[in-house]
Design a protein around this nucleic acid. Sequence first.
DNA 1: ATGGTTAGTGATTGAGCACTAACTTCAGTG
DNA 2: CACTGAAGTTAGTGCTCAATCACTAACCAT
Lengths: 184, 184
Amino acid sequence: MARMSAEERRESVIQAATTEFARGGYHGTSTEAIARRVGVSQPYLFRLFPGKKAIFLATAERCVEDTIRMFAEAAQGREGEEARHAMGAAYIEAISEQPERLMMQMQMYLAVAAAEAEGDHEFGEAVRAGWMRLWDTIHLPLGADAHDTTTFLAQGMLINCLVAMGFPAGHRAWAGLGPSESSD
Amino acid sequence: MARMSAEERRESVIQAATTEFARGGYHGTSTEAIARRVGVSQPYLFRLFPGKKAIFLATAERCVEDTIRMFAEAAQGREGEEARHAMGAAYIEAISEQPERLMMQMQMYLAVAAAEAEGDHEFGEAVRAGWMRLWDTIHLPLGADAHDTTTFLAQGMLINCLVAMGFPAGHRAWAGLGPSESSD
DNA sequence: ATGGTTAGTGATTGAGCACTAACTTCAGTG
DNA sequence: CACTGAAGTTAGTGCTCAATCACTAACCAT
């Protein structure tokens, strides 16, 4: 019931939409579900944003932004193995604190494929640009080695998938990931 | 117009559904789109399958099955680095030949999260079991080293994401992946 | 031919959805 | 205190979609 400025409302819509889109993807999420989570009537969303697509877009952008900032902050003043460790820890923390952001990323990647198939290349361009910014953000602290950067990102993507699939912590599917201990 | 046995039709529905679900995910794909691709009326799908969900399930199962068989065949009679190379090559080939299967996998992973959120753990169990079968399938040929297995899978997941995002071959986003050459 | 089974369609329905239009409530200001 | 503009709602529209029903067309025994 608390009245808010439009800007503040838009912000809380993005938060709510992250959770909802993370679960159901673009098509599996109704604007009504988002509105309910915000605590506002559904039609009001269309005063804050021009349409559902715009909400998804804003949410996706925010998600990339946050992830990049997270890595940048974790790597702050660190290099090489130390940076890798700090960024890895930050990622693990982010997963347990707000897995939505991570799931939203996956939804975003798949949404690109759908958009491209329908002739919309703009969204894809934006996401790819975001990915490359992420790439560069971790590339330098990791010592500017393409192989190391790729390995780090690959582990991240695997973690995303394992989380999506709902493997509980400690399951043997997680073997070989942890703090670089490896064993049979 | 060619009449087919119900079993043959079910098969072609699975093929068509793989393509459609890969693009749009569960919610972004209409049964009409699948029917159109099969070349059959939309209501008839509901004679072949009890519902949309059943079509998705059958498609997902087939997808996992095919992937596992692909790796098993590629690794046939090989071990260690040789097996890794053969399986990697098979994966690359599968991507260029039928990227739908790979995208369908991603859609599947995300569908698990949605299903679990709605209290359906059955689907998740099935997908996780499929993943572990895949895990074991590549684990042995790779020398039964958990770290190597995980690294292999991680690269696969990264490839999936890059394909989904639509990075063209040769883009620097692919750096550090190729045939294990690494450079700055 | 005929009686029965299996493949397949057209018409329809009811629910859910994105989005619009018109109205209401309230905080701040002259 | 009246006025205004921004925050927010209620009611409604047109569309899409999964699923059902009643029906037709082709195949296969005897």
